[in-house]
Simulated assay, not measured.
Amino acid sequence: MPVWIEYFAVAVCAITAVLAAEGKHVDLFGVLVLALVTAVGGGTIRDLCLGVRPLFWIAEPLHVWTALTAALVTFVLVRFTHLPHKLLDIADAFGLALFGIAGTEKALALGTPGIVAILLGIVTGVAGGILRDVLRQEIPWVFKADVNLYATAVFVGALVFVLLRQSLPASESHRYIGMTVILVMRLAAMRWKLRLPTYRTRTD
């Protein structure tokens, strides 16, 4: 996994945390906490599940500085210009794609079975956002019916990546195909309101 992918994912997720703080009257410290939790939360849970020590952001503290810098720049920027709310959705989709495949690839590299790698890819992609939303006292996006094909997109993209990796000779393209599947599915779901069936009983 090229190092730039994980750093870029950290920066993007930190930016989503700042944008998600709109209207919550959070000060700079609170914004930076949200950014760090969002940027490293999923990868931390992944590494704990895999027994990786030290955790990725402890082994490479530049991840922390990347998240803090991206959050600080965004915090300042939004004070002088209005950023469209759609930007949060798009930035989150990129973070989902990058972290989803990064988590899956790391799990595969450590010898986990394919289905476990896929699940850890989902955890890496969505757990930071769950923690962010819990701290904002919001229902996490991944559990909202009106947030279309969120974890599902990660599942499909990670599945495609694992199948390519296990059935074909190793290629860098597999990683980017998986990321593209996640990104395209998420953006298409946002555009055309694609979603899974909502749980209902006969009495609803």
Rank of each mutant, 00 (worst) to 15 (best):
R191M: 02
V73E: 05
I5A: 15
F56C: 05
V162E: 12
G128P: 06
K193I: 00
V12E: 06
L19F: 08
A97P: 03
F94E: 03
P113V: 14
A188E: 01
F94M: 08
Y199Q: 01
L108V: 03
A21T: 13
A67Q: 06
L159F: 14
A170P: 12
I118P: 01
V76W: 14
A102R: 11
H63I: 08
T104L: 10
F143P: 06
F8Q: 09
T201G: 09
T69S: 14
I58K: 08
L88G: 07
A17P: 07
R53W: 15
R136L: 15
M185D: 05
A35N: 10
L19H: 01
P113Q: 12
E172H: 13
W65Q: 09
R186I: 04
R132G: 06
L194V: 12
I139K: 12
L168K: 11
V73R: 01
F143L: 15
I90C: 02
V18E: 00
L164Y: 10
E172F: 13
P2Y: 15
H174A: 13
I101T: 12
V142E: 06
I130E: 08
Y7V: 02
V10W: 00
G42D: 10
R136G: 05
T198R: 11
H85C: 00
F161C: 02
I139P: 02
R186S: 04
A117R: 02
Y199G: 01
T38A: 13
H174Y: 13
I5D: 04
A127I: 13
L50Y: 09
A71M: 05
V73F: 11
G43R: 04
R202H: 00
F29D: 02
A158K: 03
F29K: 10
L87V: 13
V73L: 15
A71V: 07
T203I: 03
P169H: 10
G157T: 03
V52Q: 13
A158M: 06
L87A: 13
A127D: 04
K144P: 05
V33N: 05
G51C: 09
F94S: 07
T124S: 14
L62D: 09
L183P: 00
L19G: 04
V76T: 13
E138T: 07
R132M: 08
E60A: 13
E6R: 10
G95H: 00
I115C: 09
V26I: 15
V184K: 01
W141D: 12
A109V: 11
L28N: 05
V10H: 01
A17L: 07
K106S: 07
F155P: 03
M179F: 04
A39W: 03
L149H: 01
M1R: 14
W65Y: 14
A189C: 03
G157R: 07
T203L: 06
F29G: 06
K106I: 12
R165S: 15
P140L: 08
A102L: 09
L68R: 04
A158G: 13
P113C: 10
D133M: 08
F8Y: 11
I58T: 12
T44R: 10
L108W: 02
V142L: 09
T16N: 01
E6N: 15
I90Y: 10
F99G: 07
F56R: 03
L119A: 15
L108A: 03
M185Q: 03
G103P: 01
M179L: 04
L83V: 15
V52N: 12
V18M: 07
T74C: 13
F155N: 04
G111Q: 05
F155I: 14
Y150A: 04
F80H: 15
